[in-house]
Design a protein around this nucleic acid. Sequence first.
DNA 1: GAATGTGAAGAAGTTCACAGCA
DNA 2: TGCTGTGAACTTCTTCACATTC
Lengths: 255, 255
Amino acid sequence: MSEGAAQPVGSGGIPEATISRLPRYWQVLRDVRGQTTISSQQLAEAAGVNPAQLRKDLSYLGSVGTRGVGYDVGRLIDMVSGHLIGPASRPFMIIGMGQLGSAMAAFTGYAERGFRIAALIDIAPGLVGRRMRVAAAIGPTTMVVRSIDEIEQVVAETGATLALLCVPVRVAQQTVDRLAAAGVDSILNFAADGVHAPEGVRLRDVDLGRELQILAYYQQHPGAPAARPEPAAAEPDAVPTSAASDPSNDKKVSV
Amino acid sequence: MSEGAAQPVGSGGIPEATISRLPRYWQVLRDVRGQTTISSQQLAEAAGVNPAQLRKDLSYLGSVGTRGVGYDVGRLIDMVSGHLIGPASRPFMIIGMGQLGSAMAAFTGYAERGFRIAALIDIAPGLVGRRMRVAAAIGPTTMVVRSIDEIEQVVAETGATLALLCVPVRVAQQTVDRLAAAGVDSILNFAADGVHAPEGVRLRDVDLGRELQILAYYQQHPGAPAARPEPAAAEPDAVPTSAASDPSNDKKVSV
DNA sequence: GAATGTGAAGAAGTTCACAGCA
DNA sequence: TGCTGTGAACTTCTTCACATTC
């Protein structure tokens, strides 16, 4: 059917903006696994987006809602995670086991989100070979830190081509190059300082300084539009003194 | 229409998309502090954006380039950081001194980016009162962890209304409410699990799971257009395969 | 001559509004 | 009746192209 509406994106078909929202939908869906169906209204509200937006986003996945009813929660979860992660849990490595890397290893949310730690990597002789705590699917466990010199072997053994880069800034570039050479094609970079991604590697920066600066901008410029249009009533800036907030989900000001 | 296409955004004047790019320009500018001027061409290339985009972005700041010459680097740095951070360094608090919070405290890039740690906060009796290492403007130093019960006082003393939230997910919401009540109006949230921002609070989520899922999507769908258009010039990048041995491995955890 | 600043064209993303199906 | 799916309107963002200034 159809033709008119051109495919919004050349290859994959799903617009970038939609992809970046999928994880949020997915998370909301996990939180409501109890119910069997959910309407675009409900899901959109919980995710903080417009219902039409949500329906359009889901329609890109080749949607399967039922008119008059809503979406089947279980089916939608499968569908979204199929697109995001694939059928099996996805292995990844943590590179650099300093404080940040250790904190990442201790994060308990991986399994739930479809990932699993395949290896911990460092270069320091003092760390390589040591056991460190990691959060696994079934409670915490430990894992031996391996050397970056074995990286090719680790990639071959585990099949992990996704890495969390937690090394100091000054070795970030060389480490990225090293990983790329070993076949890693996707890197989440916490060193974030103008690291250049080699051909064929997808690098995503998480830059603390950037996030802080953006927040600081909005602190300095009150009145700047954040993310929410939401007409709502103009309220006299009543700061809730008691933690209890009203349940009517007034949209967040997330910037 | 009346005013023509003048002010593109209602209140502040600067489009959101532009604001989110300013930190990147700023960082590039810091890296080239040596030269006195820079052209939109050069700056744009280093930042990985289109030159026209860059010029338009800068023009929102009430730009001050010189035709035929380029931009004065020093002046531009002042201008951009004036918009992002303001005249003085901006104080912030780290809430939750677990592994993640400790890693954040050790991050050495704050001063350079216009921020300074004003306080470390936790709730655990075992931590409150203890000294922890933090990276300060002049080398590392230590700071006493204070209780969240003193939060109002800390805010009053330090003037910090910006917080890095590094607490476990399950107490994230209540902590946010607590901070909001104490006058904190901007929060960078690492717990990131559908935390709701009280009225008047700007919450920005850094969600590890989300970032991973987005990367995983592109792994599964090669050919989809990613983030990097076509960044910097090809640099002759001497690839140091032998990673620098780094004894002080954990100190400079750059996050 | 060289590079900025910007109107206008173009692309991408969002929201509306309603047809169509359960 | 209720809610999805989607063309079309609308808004925002990006890029082009060129007049303008040094």
